[in-house]
C-alpha cells in the first residue's frame, strides 16, 4: 500500500526514473562492497600455484597429525533413526599405522580399530575377539556413523593417492582460496572417483571437501569449521560429514585435544596391544 501511494505521488514518469536510479545505486553499492569486503576473483592458477599444490595437499594431509601423534575427539551421529555420541582416542604413526579406541558409551568402551599398512582389524572386548576387516568392507560405515572405516584410519592421502588440479583461485581478505579437483592416481586404492576441495592456501586449512562416486555422482560433503589452536597448530576442530542421499543426517567429529611427538613403544601398533589398551 505504501509503495503504491509513493508511486502515485511521483507520478508515472517520475516513478520510473526514481526506480532506475535506485537500481543503479544498489548495483554500485553491491559491486563496491563485494570488491572491498568480500572476495575478489584471483583468476586462473599461476605456475607457482601449481608448483605449490603438492605442498598444500601434503599440509592438509598432515594438518591434524604429525609423524607420531594422538588426539581425543568426540563423534556425534544424527540419522533419521537414532542419535548417538562416542568419545574416542586416536593414535597415528606415519602414514601406515593408526589406531582408534572408543571410550564412551560404556557398551562399546574398549573397542579398538587398528590399521597396519593395508590391513585393518577390530578388537571387540565383549567377545574378546580381534576381527580382520576385509578390504571389501573398508568403505562400509564405521560404528554407525557417516564415516567409513577408511576415513577413520586414514588409509588414503591426498598428496600420495590423488592427482590435483587447481580449478579456481579466489581472494578472501588476505587469504587465497583454492578450489582443487583431485582424481585418484592410476594405481592408488581409493574408492572415490573425484574429490573437490576448497582450501585456504597459506594456512593449508581445508574448508570443504565434496566426494564423488565412480559414476560421478556427489556422495557426501565434509565441512571444516571452528578453527582452534590444538597441539600448537591452528586447525579446524569440527569436521561435519553430510551424506547427499540422506537429507537431515550428519556426523560431526570434534577434536578436543591433539598431541604431537608422542613416543610409542615398539609394539604399540600391534594386535597384542589391542586387548591391553
Amino acid at each position: 500500500m505504501t509503495i503504491k501511494r509513493k508511486i502515485t505521488w511521483f507520478g508515472p514518469v517520475r516513478s520510473v526514473v526514481f526506480l532506475r536510479l535506485t537500481q543503479a545505486w544498489c548495483a554500485l553499492v553491491f559491486v563496491f562492497t563485494t570488491s572491498m569486503g568480500m572476495a575478489a576473483d584471483g583468476g586462473k592458477p599461476t605456475k607457482a600455484d601449481n608448483e605449490e599444490l603438492g605442498k598444500v595437499l601434503s599440509g592438509v594431509d598432515k594438518l591434524w597429525f604429525s609423524a607420531k601423534s594422538s588426539a581425543d575427539m568426540s563423534m556425534s551421529v544424527k540419522t533419521s533413526h537414532y542419535e548417538r555420541t562416542l568419545k574416542l582416542t586416536y593414535w597415528t604413526s606415519g602414514s601406515d599405522k593408526a589406531m582408534i579406541k572408543i571410550n564412551y558409551p560404556p557398551s562399546e568402551k574398549g573397542t579398538v580399530t587398528l590399521r597396519l599398512a593395508s590391513d585393518m582389524y577390530n578388537y571387540l572386548p565383549n567377545v574378546d575377539r580381534t576381527v580382520k576387516v576385509s578390504a571389501a568392507l573398508r568403505s562400509a560405515s564405521w560404528m554407525g556413523s557417516h564415516f567409513s572405516n577408511d576415513d577413520l584410519v586414514r588409509s588414503a592421502y591426498f598428496e600420495r593417492d590423488y592427482d590435483g588440479k587447481i580449478i579456481e583461485v579466489k581472494k578472501k581478505g588476505s587469504a587465497t582460496i583454492w578450489t582443487i579437483d583431485l582424481v585418484p592416481k592410476r594405481n592408488s586404492a581409493v574408492v572415490w572417483s573425484k574429490v573437490r576441495m576448497i582450501v585456504e592456501k597459506e594456512r593449508k586449512i581445508p574448508q570443504s571437501q565434496v566426494y564423488y562416486d565412480d559414476r560421478g555422482a556427489k556422495v557426501r560433503t565434509l565441512t571444516f569449521t571452528d578453527l582452534k589452536k590444538l597441539g600448537g597448530r591452528m586447525v579446524p576442530s569440527r569436521i561435519m560429514v553430510t551424506p547427499t542421499d540422506l537429507p537431515g543426517e550428519h556426523t560431526e567429529l570434534v577434536y578436543e585435544s591433539i598431541r604431537h611427538g608422542v613416543k610409542f613403544d615398539g609394539n604399540f601398533f600391534s594386535l597384542e596391544q589391542l586387548k591391553s589398551l
Binding site: H81, Y82, P105, L124, N126, V127, R129, V131, G144
Partner: peptide, 16 residues
Amino acid sequence: LVLLTQAADGAAANAL
C-alpha cells in the same frame, strides 16, 4: 563365528 554389525539403535553389535 563372530558376527559384527550395526544394531537398529546405531550401536555396534557383535556377538559369538
